[in-house]
Simulated scan of single mutants.
Amino acid sequence: MAFTAADVKNLREMTGVGMMDCKKALVETDGDMDKAVEYLREKGLAKAAKKAGRIAAEGMSYVCVENGAAALVEVNCETDFCAKSDAFVAFVKDIAKTVLECNPADVDALMNCKYVGTDLTVAETMPEKVMSIGENLQIRRFVRVDTNTSVGYVHAGGKIGVLVNLAVEGGIDATEIGKNVAMQIAALNPRFWDKSQVSQEVLDEEKKVALALMDQDPKMASKPAQVKEKIVMGKMNKFYQENCLLQQEFVRGDLFTGSVEGYIADAAKKLGGSVKFVNAVRFATGEGIEKKQEDFAAEVAAQMNMGK
């Protein structure tokens, strides 16, 4: 019995299982919809689909650097307990390696890549991982870089992942420099990398706020406009120091006293070369995902009532 794309769509809507698995089920059952549903249930995929509706806001951000390329990935699960499990951590690391090897354009393209070490695609592997790990799993995002020198840093077991890209000259090893900069980014989460990235719109808004505050201050309101302007410019320098990575005070005061860009230049010079910050990416696991609010008292009460 032949089947159409509409049949695949209908089966997906009936079961919640992915398109590729629905298509395979219809192929295996010669297009019989009822048998295809039964096929998916027997494979455990329908159960995995049920888990797929649950909120996955925990998880892990992880950085993998190999052979001059680097990948930063975020994979989500439902609970912090799962995020720390060996099976989940291994899965996240495999996804990072798959990104490195396949170089997909986006998450959809990644799903069609061969899962590292197997002949199955990531999409084909996901239901089995959901079943074996026991929670909804979502590959949320990734970045891949294969230019310059990349250094990764993972904080608190994957709560934050940072990938720093540096232009290195002189044949020096800039790993420690990159890691220290990545730790700064993880800790302070700057809005901008450099003051040159701050738009005129942002500057105008900051100046507007600073002037308004001075006008509300009895001691400052009567001062001449040029004095206020000079004070505002001083506040802009403070704004850069608080919001721009390279202008921030370097947090590792035991290594260097001054700005981050000063630290990078000083550390590179001591190694006999030069290093310039190019770019960075910071993932905070679960940021922006609305987490389910658990009411444990209600949950226990519900379980006790079920037992009556």
Rank of each mutant, 00 (worst) to 15 (best):
D32F: 01
A167S: 12
L11A: 00
V281I: 11
N136D: 05
N76S: 08
V202T: 11
V89P: 01
R282C: 08
M220Y: 02
M306N: 12
D266G: 02
A52V: 03
E169T: 14
E261Q: 13
Q138R: 07
E78G: 09
Q138F: 08
A5M: 04
K238V: 14
S150F: 05
E242L: 12
G273Q: 03
F296V: 02
V281W: 08
E101H: 12
V168Q: 00
Y153N: 07
V75P: 04
E242T: 14
F81P: 13
D108W: 06
V181H: 01
K9F: 07
K23W: 04
G258W: 08
N67P: 04
G286V: 03
Q184S: 08
F283P: 11
R191C: 13
G157T: 09
W193M: 15
Y263Q: 08
Y115H: 10
G68F: 08
K114M: 14
D119K: 11
T121W: 02
E13H: 01
E74V: 06
E128K: 15
R282I: 11
E135R: 07
N67G: 09
V227N: 10
E58V: 05
C102H: 07
E128P: 12
V37N: 05
G171M: 06
V27L: 14
Q197A: 13
A186K: 01
D32N: 13
L203T: 10
F142L: 15
T15R: 01
V281F: 08
K43L: 01
A225V: 15
F91Y: 15
V37T: 01
Q200C: 00
G258F: 13
E299R: 09
G234Y: 06
A96H: 06
V37Q: 00
V17G: 07
C64I: 09
L45G: 10
V73S: 02
A69Q: 10
N136T: 09
S85Q: 10
G272W: 00
R141P: 01
G44P: 11
V75T: 09
A298M: 11
L203W: 10
M236C: 04
D108I: 09
F3P: 01
D146Y: 05
K230R: 12
K23A: 06
S61V: 11
L255R: 06
P127Y: 04
G158T: 10
V181K: 01
M126T: 05
K270L: 08
A6I: 11
A5G: 00
D266K: 00
T29S: 06
N103I: 10
L45Q: 14
D204A: 13
M220K: 07
E13S: 11
N10G: 05
G68S: 03
A182G: 13
F88N: 05
Y240T: 11
